[in-house]
Simulated assay, not measured.
Amino acid sequence: MRPLAAGAQLACIAFLLIALALQFLRQDLDWTRTPLSFYLVGPHGPLLQGAYGLLSLGLIGLGASAYRSGAPHARSAAPLLLFVVAGIALAITALAETPFPGHALTLQGLVHGLAAQTAFLCVTVAMLLQAWRWRADPGFRHRFAAAFFGAVFCFLALWVHVLVRDLPRGASQKAVIALIGLWLLRVSGWVGRDRRA
């Protein structure tokens, strides 16, 4: 399972670097007001789609490796299943094209929006549950506080983005994505170094 954790870490790195690079490459989009979904359409869209695909596999790999690396009495299938659902939803998000503001909502756009919301919700809840399981795991107990409070911060940041509509939609969404990505990157590194992973 160690290769899955290492793969998840590499997927997070690739996704974060590509998403960051596109903020400079897409001069036609205002990064503070444009959510990341709109970078899937137009120049360099396939590059970001590939990054979403990598991250979706990384989420599934992290879920599986975190499950297998945990002590048997501290394991739960719930975070694993949520990571898998988040990964599938993220892949659908990448493939279903979202319409730009002012254009009519299409079936693809509806699917994209629902998939994106599912991915956000499932991954943040998976993070919380996985970190919570570590409080009873001798091999990961020393990681519990950092993992759990980091996950709580990401979960709260997501709801601030959703509920506080006055925030710049692009900047607030990308901040949430960056926080989640950094949590995933850090935790996949921890899981990858565990002797049971």
Rank of each mutant, 00 (worst) to 15 (best):
A171I: 04
L105F: 13
V84S: 03
I88P: 04
L107P: 12
H142G: 12
R165V: 14
F100A: 15
Q108L: 15
R135Q: 13
R165S: 10
G150M: 09
H142N: 15
V162K: 05
T106P: 05
L80W: 06
G170F: 02
W159D: 05
L105E: 14
K174P: 10
F83Q: 00
Q117P: 11
E97Y: 10
W159S: 03
I92G: 12
P168E: 00
S172M: 07
G139M: 06
H103K: 12
F155G: 06
V125Y: 09
L163S: 09
A136C: 14
A126V: 03
A126H: 01
R141W: 02
A115T: 10
W132C: 01
F153P: 06
L82M: 07
A94C: 08
L80F: 11
K174V: 03
V164L: 14
R141K: 15
A126M: 02
W159R: 08
L107A: 15
L121M: 15
T124Y: 01
V152F: 05
L82Q: 08
M127F: 10
R165G: 08
T106A: 08
P138L: 12
G139A: 14
A91V: 03
A175H: 02
L163H: 03
T118L: 06
H112P: 01
A126I: 05
E97I: 14
R143Q: 15
S172Q: 00
L107W: 12
T98D: 04
C154E: 05
I177N: 03
G113L: 11
F140D: 11
L82N: 12
L90W: 00
A147C: 15
T118D: 03
I88L: 13
L167M: 03
G170M: 10
V125M: 11
F140Y: 15
A119V: 02
D166P: 02
F155E: 06
V123P: 02
R133I: 00
V85H: 04
L105V: 11
A86S: 14
A175F: 00
L80S: 03
R141Y: 01
I177Q: 10
I88Q: 05
F149S: 09
R169K: 13
Q130G: 02
F144N: 01
C122W: 02
A116W: 03
L158S: 00
L80V: 02
R133S: 02
W132T: 01
K174E: 08
W159N: 12
F100C: 12
W132R: 13
R133T: 10
A126E: 03
M127N: 09
Q130I: 05
T124F: 00
F144M: 02
R135W: 10
T93N: 10
A89Q: 07
P99D: 11
A157M: 09
R143T: 12
P101Y: 13
V176I: 04
L156H: 01
A126G: 05
A115Y: 07
W134V: 00
V111K: 03
G150E: 04
L80P: 04
L129Y: 04
I177M: 10
P79L: 10
R135M: 08
G113M: 14
L163A: 14
L128S: 07
